[in-house]
Design a protein around this nucleic acid. Structure first.
Lengths: 329, 329
DNA sequence: CTGTTAGCGCCTTCAG
DNA sequence: CTGAAGGCGCTAACAG
């Protein structure tokens, strides 16, 4: 590989001149720039990005860290992140935190391989985030609170969203309502459960803990949890699935047993993923402002990078989406 | 940020010793290693990844380049890529080629910021790929042929898949069949069209070019193309959509006009994306072996990195998936 | 406008 | 085990 040295030599100029020319610095004459560019072309020169990053201690790239890139991630969120990132002429890379401590995500965080990061990955430890965030390495977390002035929380109001959905169930006459939960260490799940319980409490309904089953936020988990519930012989009137993926798994379990939704059991999900509109019946759920969350996250990173003061946390609200998986009164 | 120098100082050892200790080199005693590690911990030392990459000219990471990360990408493909990459203790990052020459993908390719790349992005120019691929930078392309011994093609048999699907249409009595096409510069689209035409020809059917409309591989494009066809007043018996996204857009256009699928028009798609099973009616389509393609791609990269000889191209076959969007004879 | 020079942080000899 | 020294490729003063 040709280096900048070779280019300078071939163009017959000094190394620094070549560097200036290549980087479009003012103080080089047009003709010299042309000479250098020509030499670079002839040598098929490509700069070594690492060397330049090392020197400038700046990468011009933002990382989006997801718990599982192959998961049904939020395409709207990525779109929001991508557009804002691109409009600032920054690069964006996505990486996964699958594999815990030895994951790519961990490496990027620890080694500060990017200028800022956005995290939506419950398997990245809060400790790691707190240790990594600092003035020149802002981190935005979308799914938890973090104690570090350079780790900002962009949160959606999971609690209120869950409250609304639960109330919808109650208003339509459902009294025994089960909760299919996400991972216990998920902050989002916890908030949703709180909203759910609050609604129940406010309407004088007591929650029966045998109707709380974990489904781990996966379709398969939702399927199994639902199967279990069916096997118990005593189905509640309605089920609150802490996310859509699990609800869709549940739908399948019910359909296999000939249990009709919403005639026999009503269900609601959370997230409003793309599929939810297409399943049968279309899923009543709570929509998250994903695009906005993504855009706001990046926007905040750039503000921090520019040394501006930002709030410690931002709140975004959800929207209830009524479709056909809840029986009307 | 603490550097290795600080660690060495604090541990009271030489810089080189610290380096050895940190990298698990044999020639350092266990007690010294402990001392160094302790100092590193106390200083919250993190090595600078760029410096080390620069020195070693190796990044231990593979890039997956997609035309649009927020698009309905192939989650199975990512899974295949991810699993094999992780099993080799390599890191994986995904980036988008959105933005053409100034995209993140272009930067990674040009500057060789990774050890190898897998490309499924029709907006990355073949020229760039050919210029970038070299012995120490293997590239696998999933959607075209490239003339460079270090750019290997993992292809699925689009042609045969399209042939089969078309034949299915013909066998069920359809004679005038339209083709909703992808981008003209897409190799996949071209191959699918060839399979489609071949099937028609082999059954003595002549294709009417007014029934070929471009839909650009997007849902919206499929929607618009279908609208256009409907507006022409003369619908064919059946429609071959060059991918599922477009077919789903078409489904919506038909439904808005009260045209019933498959009673009025039969349709088939291509890809078998997750949604296809859930739309109404469930889409008959051609399934691509995405997981296998992803896994094979990474596997090949590692072989090349190890200096082994590999074939210039690999072929994977498709599978016809019969669902309910084609009227039976 | 050009050439010289001093690092960025890390890794790896090599002789002691 | 040490300490010095050379470099990876590039950038950015600085002095001419």
């Amino acid at each position: 590989m040709a280096t900048i040295k070779d280019v300078a030599k071939r163009a017959g100029v000094a190394l620094s001149t070549a560097s200036y020319a290549l980087n479009g610095n003012q103080k080089v004459s047009a003709s010299t720039i042309e000479k250098v560019l020509k030499a670079a072309r002839e040598l098929n020169y490509q700069k070594n990005g690492f060397a330049s990053d090392l020197k400038r201690t700046k990468t011009n790239t933002i990382a989006l860290i997801l718990s599982d890139m192959s998961g049904p991630y939020f395409s709207e969120l990525i779109k929001g992140v991508q557009e804002v990132t691109a409009s600032h002429q920054y690069d964006l890379i996505a990486c996964s935190s699958l594999g815990g401590d030895r994951s790519t995500a961990t490496k990027f965080l620890r080694e500060k391989r990017v200028d800022g990061a956005i995290i939506l990955a419950n398997n990245v430890s809060t400790q790691l985030i707190e240790e990594s965030a600092r003035e020149d390495f802002p981190i935005i977390v979308l799914d938890r609170e973090v104690q570090n002035p350079f780790a900002i929380h962009v949160k959606v109001d999971n609690r209120h969203g869950a409250y609304q959905a639960t109330e919808h169930l109650i208003e339509n006459g459902h009294r025994t309502i089960g909760y299919i939960s996400g991972p216990h260490d998920s902050h989002d799940n916890e908030e949703r459960f709180k909203g759910f319980s609050d609604a129940l409490k406010d309407h004088g309904i007591t929650f029966q803990s045998r109707f709380k089953i974990s489904g781990n936020f996966t379709r398969d988990g939702g399927y199994r949890a639902t199967k279990m519930l069916i096997a118990q012989q005593q189905l509640p009137d309605a089920l609150f699935y802490a996310n859509d993926e699990m609800a869709i798994g549940g739908l399948q379990a019910f359909s296999e047993k000939g249990i009709s939704i919403p005639d026999d059991v009503s269900i609601v999900g959370f997230d409003d993923i793309q599929l939810s509109e297409y399943v049968n019946p279309p899923l009543t759920t709570v929509k998250q402002p994903k695009y906005e969350a993504g855009a706001l996250a990046v926007h905040t990173i750039f503000q921090m990078l520019a040394g501006e003061q930002v709030d410690q946390s931002f709140d975004l609200s959800t929207e209830f989406v009524k479709r056909s998986s809840v029986r009307s009164k």
